[in-house]
């Protein structure tokens, strides 16, 4: 365990925000679930007790008859906003006094940094370069992430959980979102920052970054493992595999939705449902490629002269 290496990584000025992220994301995930738990207990109580439904104010916070449902923005909201502004200002000034922004040597195109890393918030995408062609990792997937995020309100047809935290009423939506955000985004950012060293090789946390390390790992494309040869056979095999993967994952998801979430299916139009399935299958394809590469040294499923998947 090379603690010096750990300290160097963690104390690198531009990595400090990620350490912050590492603390804040679990905290706020916990906070959201604590609020969801409160609401879920209230919901269970209301479901059990029809009389309570008629009289209860339906928020897990205290309320007494006669209390107004709203409060004046001045001072109740504004004082909190001013306080938040003061706290943020103080925190940022203290942070800026304690830690200097990084400035390295002047830009030098003839001296390549190793590892060459994008800004930390793009390291999840840079990590995807390990698993995908640059046009997928750098262009297609970010576009799909953005479009997928924008599609969320139009494909989430669940009328429950509008404006309050809940887990039990929105399990599928929340699990999918948190998997995407916590695992496929934040975790990949953390891997890209703390785990990937010189040559973008995998160094466990605490392992010394050896700039002369040679990686002897050989990666195979899937058709090589199956002994498929010949130009068109390789393409046909890859296309069949990727197509088959999408069909099977899509099929399993479809059966799961129909069996366990029939109401969701019923509420969705065909376009909504197809969009949701497509995004879900693509997300699983990303997971499959990560697992194949890290676990089984398999690089590409589909190899063509123009692009690989």
């Amino acid at each position: 365990m090379d603690w010096h290496q750990v300290w160097e990584l963690v104390s690198l000025p531009d990595n400090v925000p990620i350490v912050l992220l590492l603390l804040m994301v679990p905290f706020y995930t916990w906070l959201a679930f604590r609020e969801a738990g409160r609401n879920d207990r209230l919901i269970a109580e209301l479901e059990r007790d029809p009389d309570m439904r008629k009289t209860h104010h339906r928020v897990p916070y205290p309320w007494k008859p006669g209390w107004p449902k709203t409060v004046h923005v001045w001072p109740h909201l504004l004082k909190r906003e001013f306080l938040a502004a003061i706290i943020v200002t103080v925190v940022m000034i203290v942070w800026s006094i304690c830690l200097d922004a990084p400035l390295e040597e002047p830009a030098n195109p003839s001296l390549t940094m190793n590892p060459s890393k994008a800004p930390w918030y793009f390291l999840g995408l840079q990590e995807l370069l390990v698993y995908f062609d640059p046009w997928i990792a750098g262009v297609v997937l970010p576009s799909i992430i953005l479009m997928g995020l924008m599609a969320i309100p139009y494909i989430d047809v669940n009328p429950l959980g509008n404006g309050y935290y809940t887990w039990k009423q929105r399990k599928f939506a929340i699990a999918t979102f948190l998997f995407g955000f916590l695992v496929l985004w934040v975790l990949l950012v953390i891997i890209g920052t703390f785990i990937r060293g010189p040559g973008w090789l995998w160094f466990n946390l605490g392992e010394t970054w050896d700039h002369h390390r040679v990686d002897h790992q050989v990666n195979y494309d899937l058709h090589e493992l199956f002994g498929v040869t010949g130009a068109w056979q390789v393409i046909a095999f890859g296309a069949a595999f990727v197509g088959g993967f999408c069909a099977i994952v899509g099929g399993i998801t479809h059966l799961w939705v129909v069996k366990c979430m029939p109401l969701m299916r019923k509420r969705m139009s065909l376009v909504q449902y197809a969009t949701m399935l497509q995004l879900w299958v693509l997300m699983m394809l990303v997971v499959a490629k990560i697992i194949a590469r890290l676990g089984f040294t398999v690089k590409n499923f589909l190899v063509t002269p123009w692009f690989n998947i």
């Binding site: 925000p17 912050l20 995930t29 969801a36 940022m92 800026s96 969320i152 979102f177 955000f181």
Partner: peptide, 28 residues
């Protein structure tokens, strides 16, 4: 320093704001 760290903090708070909006179903 302020400019640098505010920028990094803003990326983090944007993500967390988005997470809050999702978790509370506020995009519905």
């Amino acid at each position: 320093n302020m400019h640098r760290w505010c920028a990094h903090a803003m990326v983090i708070t944007t993500w967390l704001h988005m997470m809050r909006v999702f978790m509370s179903g506020s995009y519905k």
